[in-house]
Design a protein around this nucleic acid. Structure first.
Lengths: 343, 343
DNA sequence: GTTAGCACTCTCCTTTATTGAGTGCTAAAA
DNA sequence: TTTTAGCACTCAATAAAGGAGAGTGCTAAC
């Protein structure tokens, strides 16, 4: 069977309608609302063909048709026209990145927030992945008698800092000495290659202050853990309730629990690390839990190095054209902001 | 009418039962399940009295009784026995505070998380309120050629740090000079008293580097904003769906939207700044939105200075005895952790 | 003061129609 | 050969009706 122009038109009409109404679309609706110049009976026949070809599905015998994942895929790849953002939205995003000083985490968090506000879907954002990044500089900075700061500058300019307590009798010179040793040893390595206990040199220096050494080990292991913590930020989790497909309390609940599984979200986002916007529709998602959702992701980078990804999660009945437009814009805006600031 | 011992016993029985079953409790249930030695008819009469006195309510004529806010209040104040935590729970909390090094925000965040896991309610935690705290030390620390760190140590030992970029040609000496000026000017002041633009001295120093000055102003204003940001951490937002009273999608949704109103949560938590555990039942809450919820809060402190509050939000049909026990324990554990670490 | 008994109320659940949107098929029209 | 009109049929959703069950309040006896 051939997928001729009329079939495509009908498919597009059905998808458009379904995205708006969330109700199965019948032949009569298509005939009336979309001016295709043929009768409902003809459309009925075509719809039957489209179902046979796998682009449409029927919830039950006497209902209209609903697009299948395959149908959406065709729509996303060939049929839809990606609109660009309207002025208001673009302005809103611009506003977000106007403040020049933000902690990196804050930037990502706010990005997720705005993303969910603009799209009305749930948004996710992956924190920059330190595991991909090497250490450029480590410095222990004395703050006052009690505290010092452990600062790690990475190859992508991202900073990680942690406050640590220092015991009495440790002065700036000592901290400098330790900093130098750490630098010698770890510059150019990744976070996961840090293994403090191996450094015999450090042990020597710390011989007279074993407690501080232990504390330092704690800090560094913790930094390490933070890297593996797979930090994921969420936005607009309550948005899901606006959608008719999640009026069922059971679905809504399982969706929300899903969002609390950070590891899962991490995997989903991390899997889309090629540059640009990516759309995963329903069962295309590797995880069963998302088989009724679509996920649109975009990467963000610092310079030409991909740092992480942002995304939105909605029902397969998603406004793809808008979603793709927003993600594309947002990914680029975030990248350019980061590059300007830390690049 | 007098609230004699038998009435109290019956009230307690009803509340206990209702907390477990979430179903209106009838006279026959009380007679059968709780051995009070009287018939259901007698209990019926007593329940009628208790309703007249305002401790019970009837959803409709032919249903059992449900405790009123006033009933719960009596229960919390007089009737319930506060159990202490079981070993497992205590162990779990201990585990949480075993790691010695955490960013303060991380500590609070994790506390909220554990709180929701243990209680199965939604938890909230107020970040330490910097507005209550004075500045002890300000230091600009050079990291490398591009970056410096602005570190603020407060009177309670809490640190606030922000990475800033420094323009070329600014060296450590210069940063030190600026640090000293800032210290002279702001030591002992609160965050809200910072008004950089007033410092003529600083302007002089910066005369030759206006851009950096502006950037510094940005950073400090931003720190300021962060203080007013009213940071609130949430845990277990999906827990609400486990409760029968939130099976109604409409209620669940409005509850979740409520949780996104950080300002509101902030007010609720900030209002309970006296030391110790506080229980707000239903309409006792200042905000209408929470009139079907109960909130149990506890403060946490550093040394003897109250820094913030943590709390759990559930239905008025809450396991008060457990909730109070957990909050009491948790508040103390968090305080002692903070005090040990930063005190 | 307590209890048994009974009429009464109100929700919840199940069963039964009824409606309406939509399909698939057939036969006629283009 | 393609399109269309017509019609029987299907199925979900909604409404109406009829118990069943849990619980109360009242009365009269213990």
């Amino acid at each position: 069977m051939k997928l001729d122009a009329r079939k495509l038109k009908i498919l597009q009409a059905i998808i458009n309608d379904y995205i708006i109404t969330a109700e199965p679309v019948g032949s009569r609706t298509v005939a009336k609302k979309y001016d295709l110049g043929v009768s409902s009976a003809t459309i009925r026949n075509e719809m039957s063909d489209l179902e046979e070809m796998g682009y449409l599905e029927q919830p039950h015998t006497s209902a209209g048709r609903v697009p299948s994942d395959k149908g959406y895929r065709l729509y996303v790849d060939k049929l839809m026209k990606v609109r660009s953002l309207n002025d208001q939205e673009a302005e809103y995003i611009k506003e977000l990145y106007k403040t020049k000083i933000m902690q990196l985490e804050q930037v990502i968090f706010n990005t997720a927030k705005v993303l969910s506000e603009i799209t009305n879907y749930t948004s996710v954002a992956l924190a920059p992945q330190l595991s991909k990044v090497t250490i450029r500089h480590i410095q222990l900075v004395p703050i006052d008698k009690e505290f010092a700061l452990l600062v790690v500058v990475t190859s992508s300019g991202i900073l990680k800092d942690t406050v640590i307590r220092v015991p009495d009798g440790i002065d700036g010179d000592f901290l400098n000495k330790v900093s130098n040793i750490l630098n010698d040893k770890y510059r150019g390595k990744t976070f996961s290659e840090i293994d403090l206990k191996e450094v015999s040199k450090i042990k020597e220096v710390f011989a007279r202050n074993q407690k501080f050494f232990n504390s330092l080990v704690d800090v560094l292991t913790h930094s390490l853990r933070a890297v593996q913590d797979k930090e994921v930020y969420l936005g607009g989790t309550a948005n899901i309730f606006k959608l008719p497909e999640f009026q069922d309390i059971f679905k809504a609940r399982s969706f929300l629990s899903l969002l609390e599984e950070k590891d899962l979200l991490y995997d989903v986002l991390a899997s889309s690390q090629d540059d640009g916007v990516k759309v995963s529709i329903g069962a295309e998602n590797h995880y069963d839990e998302f088989k009724e959702c679509s996920i649109v992701t975009a990467t963000y980078s610092l310079g030409d190095r991909v740092l992480g990804a942002i995304g939105i999660i909605g029902p397969t009945r998603m406004e793809y054209s808008r979603a793709v437009a927003v993600m594309d814009h947002m990914g680029k805006a975030l990248s350019s902001y980061l590059t300007k600031l830390y690049g």
